[in-house]
C-alpha cells in the first residue's frame, strides 16, 4: 500500500471503462443519426454527431422533466417532514415501543413495490387520485420514509446527550431543541436523505406506470417508456431523453459524492 504502482491505476481505468461502457453507449447512440442506427454493425464513435435526438427529446419531453422535478422535490419535503421528527422521538425522546417501530420500518422496506402499487391503485381509484402528481409524491415517498427514519435515528443516537440536556436546561421546549439544536446537527443526514428521496422519486417507474398511466402530467421515466412503445425507429431520441434523465444522478454524484457513499452504506440497513 505504500508504493503506488501505475499498473494498478491502468487496470482500474480498464475496469471502470468496461463497467461504464453501457453509459458510453447510451451517449453514443443519442448522438448517432437515426438511419445509421439501422446498420447491422453499429459505429463505435459518434464520428458524425447529430443533435436531432436531443432536439426531439427537448421538444417532446420538457413537460415530463418538469413534472419529475416537481415530484422529486415534493417527495424530499414530505420525507424529511415525516422522518426527522419521528427519528427525534425514537433516538432522543425515548419513544415507548421504539424498538417495535424500528422493526416495522425494517419490514416495511421488504415489501415489493408492485404490491404497494396495487394497494395504492385500489385506494386511488376510489379517491380519484389516479394520474395526480400528489398521489405519485405520496406513493414515491413510501420508498424513502423508512430509510430516512433509520438513517436519521442512527445519527441522532450519536449526538451527545449533554447538548440536548443543556438546551432543555436553558428553557428550550422539545420543539425548540429539535429545530434549533438537533436539526442543524443533522445537516449531513438531511442532505443524504434528500439526495436519495429525490433520486428514487426521479427514477421511479413502477408507481408512475401504474398510478399515472394516462395523466396529463407524466414523469420522465414514463415519458421514456412511452417513447419506446411508440416509435422504435427513433432510438437516438430515446437515448437522448435517457441521457437527460440521467443528468440529476450525474450532477449529484459530482457535487455530493460523500453523501451518496453514506447513503449506499446505510443501504445495508435499507432494503
Amino acid at each position: 500500500m505504500t508504493d503506488r504502482p501505475w499498473w494498478k491505476t491502468a487496470l482500474g481505468v480498464v475496469f471502470t471503462a468496461v463497467m461504464l461502457f453501457p453509459v458510453y453507449w447510451m451517449v453514443n447512440v443519442s448522438l448517432t443519426d437515426a438511419s445509421d442506427l439501422r446498420r447491422s454493425s453499429p459505429s463505435w464513435f459518434p464520428a458524425d454527431p447529430t443533435f436531432e435526438g436531443y432536439t426531439a427529446a427537448f421538444s417532446q419531453q420538457l413537460p415530463s422533466l418538469g413534472t419529475s422535478l416537481g415530484i422529486g422535490l415534493g417527495c424530499v419535503a414530505l420525507t424529511v417532514a415525516i422522518a426527522a421528527p419521528a427519528a427525534y422521538a425514537l433516538a432522543i425522546l425515548n419513544l415507548k415501543g421504539g424498538r417495535s417501530l424500528n422493526f416495522l420500518l425494517l419490514v416495511a422496506q421488504m415489501i415489493p413495490a408492485v404490491v404497494m402499487a396495487m394497494g395504492f391503485y385500489a385506494i386511488y381509484v376510489r379517491l380519484g387520485l389516479l394520474n395526480s402528481v400528489w398521489g405519485l409524491i405520496v406513493a414515491d415517498s413510501t420508498v424513502a420514509v423508512p430509510f430516512a427514519v433509520l438513517l436519521y435515528s442512527t445519527f441522532m443516537a450519536g449526538i451527545p446527550r449533554e447538548l440536548v440536556h443543556a438546551a432543555r436546561m436553558d428553557g428550550a421546549s422539545a420543539w425548540g431543541t429539535f429545530t434549533k439544536v438537533v436539526l442543524p446537527l443533522c445537516r449531513n443526514s438531511t442532505l443524504t436523505v434528500a439526495l436519495f428521496a429525490f433520486l428514487w422519486a426521479w427514477s421511479d417507474f413502477i408507481f408512475a406506470s401504474t398510478l399515472s398511466r394516462s395523466g396529463e402530467y407524466i414523469p420522465i421515466t414514463l415519458g421514456i417508456y412511452q417513447y419506446i412503445g411508440n416509435n422504435t425507429t427513433q432510438w437516438n431520441a430515446i437515448m437522448a431523453t435517457a441521457v437527460i434523465a440521467s443528468l440529476p444522478a450525474a450532477i449529484l454524484l459530482v457535487v455530493a459524492q460523500r453523501y451518496v457513499a453514506a447513503g449506499v452504506t446505510a443501504g445495508a440497513v435499507k432494503d
Binding site: M1, R4, P5, W6, K8, T9, G12, V13, F15, T16, M19, L20, P22, V23, W25, M26, V29, L199, W202, S203, F205, I220, T221, I224, Y225, I228, I238, M239, A242, A245, S246, A249, A250, L252, L253, Q257, V260, A261, V264
Partner: peptide
C-alpha cells in the same frame, strides 16, 4: 489498495446504481 485515482474510479462505479432503471434497462 490506495493507488492513484482509486477514489475517483470507485466513485464512477456508482454511476450504474444511480441511473434511473428505465435508462439502464432500455440501454
Amino acid at each position: 489498495a490506495n493507488f492513484r485515482l482509486s477514489a475517483v474510479l470507485r466513485a464512477l462505479f456508482l454511476v450504474p446504481w444511480l441511473l434511473p432503471l428505465i435508462v439502464s434497462s432500455s440501454t
